[in-house]
Design a protein around this nucleic acid. Sequence first.
DNA 1: TTTT
DNA 2: TTTT
Lengths: 120, 120, 120, 120
Amino acid sequence: MRGLNKVMLIGNLGKDPEEQTLEGGITVAKFSLATTESYKDDKGETHSLTEWHSIVAWRSLADLAGKYLKKGSTIYLEGKIKTRSYEDKEGNKKYVTEIIAESFIMLDKPADKAEINASF
Amino acid sequence: MRGLNKVMLIGNLGKDPEEQTLEGGITVAKFSLATTESYKDDKGETHSLTEWHSIVAWRSLADLAGKYLKKGSTIYLEGKIKTRSYEDKEGNKKYVTEIIAESFIMLDKPADKAEINASF
Amino acid sequence: MRGLNKVMLIGNLGKDPEEQTLEGGITVAKFSLATTESYKDDKGETHSLTEWHSIVAWRSLADLAGKYLKKGSTIYLEGKIKTRSYEDKEGNKKYVTEIIAESFIMLDKPADKAEINASF
Amino acid sequence: MRGLNKVMLIGNLGKDPEEQTLEGGITVAKFSLATTESYKDDKGETHSLTEWHSIVAWRSLADLAGKYLKKGSTIYLEGKIKTRSYEDKEGNKKYVTEIIAESFIMLDKPADKAEINASF
DNA sequence: TTTT
DNA sequence: TTTT
């Protein structure tokens, strides 16, 4: 409660989304999204800095991602931050921070397919 | 370029901010922020789910965080996501995702101190 | 398509929400929300500037606004901008810009009532 | 204080920006931005609904708008809502709600010119 | 580790 | 018309 956890990104997919169907028939799609920022250093030279985000889409939004998004697609994505832990093969506890997608807009696609909202 | 990387959170600090002064006199403040979400399960029962975010504030924003924020403070925070890697003591590569603060608003403090923007 | 129209406000209600039930049983709640910004002038003196927003909530969100929000309540509100035109008594065309509420969070209320999302 | 007044839009310019230089050498650029939303009606048919926003950019951001934005340009724009009143020729008080631009990203332009932030 |  |  009293909580807001919102992420807004505009960037490009690094690869095609990977879709999976879990037991129970629920689908998940995962992809990475690059957001690039440009800044000037002390000498006034422009540099660019890319940040990669791990995106996870569930259910119908996963289907839409799998169907319409490709490597290189430019999208606006809205979602929330979630950190989960797991154990790697050596038994070390690891943490991953992912963005759970809530909706996205395709910025380089035909307009009739452009706006997509999560059903969840 | 073409990039947007924006995070908006409303939540509470888990602890007082930890301030550090780096070589060169630059200050950093770090703290964790809890955002709590409530949802209903299949049976209609309400549950709450807390997500912890690692926040990093630089320079003058670090000073303001150190000066005004305390364990338990409720804030609205705007920033961007940044994942950095480091090697732990055993030489394993690890990743941490942090929110670089850009501004915050205190939601439970006297109004004359409430709105604070990063100078960076 | 390709469209994003999003407003995020943190402020206080100027009055209790006004509820109305339209033909067909649809409920609407209207209220004004003040967002106050502070800035420094050329001489370094701090001023504050208040902006008033006309908020419109529909259906179940209207019910929740009517039930929980009062004059003075502090809320985070998310919605979209909509400008509509009408004719005044003298037949002049007039325009009003309103924020159609999509969700709100109460920032000064008991937590179990704090987070409220539009069903629409 | 305690205030947040933030607007985020993705849309297209209806016309080229109109630039003006005020006394004192301050520049302003004005343009309208269309955000289009698609929705399904009761019968499942898709409709689209366009909302027009009046955008005002000041100083260096006005210069950038005048230089890089054209009729039809697709942009992401961030700003705040401001309603001002004036008297028309007949002496009637009128209100206009405008979006004061704070930054924009060009979504259909060469990447090296894409990200632009207000200096104000 | 927070808050209600 | 709010809030601090």
